[in-house]
Design a protein around this nucleic acid. Structure first.
Length: 287
DNA sequence: ATGACTGGATAGTCCAGA
């Protein structure tokens, strides 16, 4: 069984690339984030294409921002929209959906960004993550928590820790929220497979960050022990970040029991021959 | 080349993203 998660940054803009990628990678379960459309529009725009490919689907969308979905061709049962008791900002946003697929409880998540440490949005992020922890704690033993977690688990998951000082995604309280999931037995399958490689899943569109491989690993697949033990391959599909009109995120792929493409490489560019990359580079700044 | 973004809503630019 192949499970993937991908922040597509607008299904509408990503439609041709998403369909091509489904045909190429043929995942059995797909977690999507940042649909940026309502459930009705999602079903109309892409539903027939998904049905043609054998997928059942469910979504938790909004008109303009956020939005998550689950696609599955190994069953889609007991769908839960959102997280029980989770806060809104101020309204409850489309950031979580879960279902049982192929015997595994799968979560597709778009964790709030947090904006600035100490801001209202940052508090919202931490409170939302606490409710996620409570929901997962009530889950069965076979669980996959997938999505854009908007947290880099360690300093190895950003191109230069100094560039992120004082920013969200790397602060101790955010990382503690991930540790709380680890305390429930969830394991970071990509990092377990590639313990030393700089594997990123997000690169800012600006300033040629992708081509310089100045990224972050914030899209995660966290597996409970029985599921993590079934890992045959785990990798980040950075080819999907190349070419025309990509998302700023790449998909993350986990193969359970067997790996259709073999045990692919870490999907990182070869190390540059010269100076170290990324030291002293600043984050692109919003106006 | 030492600078380099994209999407959504809107109808000027502004907000959001991480």
């Amino acid at each position: 069984m192949r499970v993937a998660t991908w922040n597509v940054n607008s299904v509408k803009q990503r439609l041709p690339r998403l369909l091509d990628w489904l045909d190429q990678r043929r995942p059995d379960v797909v977690c999507l984030q940042e649909l940026k459309m309502t459930d009705d529009v999602f079903a109309t725009l892409i539903g027939p294409d998904l049905t043609d490919r054998g997928y059942l689907f469910a979504s938790n969308g909004e008109p303009q921002w956020n939005g998550v979905a689950l696609l599955s061709r190994v069953g889609l049962d007991d769908v839960t929209i959102g997280i029980p008791g989770a806060p809104g900002f101020p309204h409850v946003e489309g950031r979580a959906i879960s279902a049982t697929c192929g015997g595994v409880r799968v979560h597709s998540l778009y964790v709030p960004n947090g904006r600035e440490p100490g801001s209202d949005h940052y508090t919202y992020k931490l409170e939302w993550l606490a409710k996620l922890r409570d929901q997962v704690a009530a889950d069965p033993s076979d669980v996959l928590v997938c999505g854009d977690m908007n947290i880099a688990p360690t300093d190895a998951d950003v191109f230069d820790p100094a560039a992120f000082a004082g920013h969200t995604h790397v602060t101790a309280p955010e990382r503690s929220a991930l540790a709380a999931l680890a305390d429930l037995g969830l394991r970071d399958v990509v990092r377990e497979r590639w313990p030393d490689e700089p594997v990123f899943s997000y690169w800012d569109y600006r300033a040629g960050m992708f081509h310089k491989n100045l990224g972050m690993r914030i899209d995660l697949i966290l597996a409970s022990g029985p599921v993590a033990d079934r890992r045959a391959a785990a990798w980040i599909d950075r080819l999907a970040r190349k070419g025309t009109a990509p998302s700023d995120h790449a998909p993350v792929i986990l193969d359970l029991d067997s790996a259709p493409d073999g045990d692919v490489g870490p999907m990182v560019p070869p190390p540059s021959a010269g100076r170290p990359r990324g030291r002293g580079v600043k984050l692109p700044q919003s106006k």
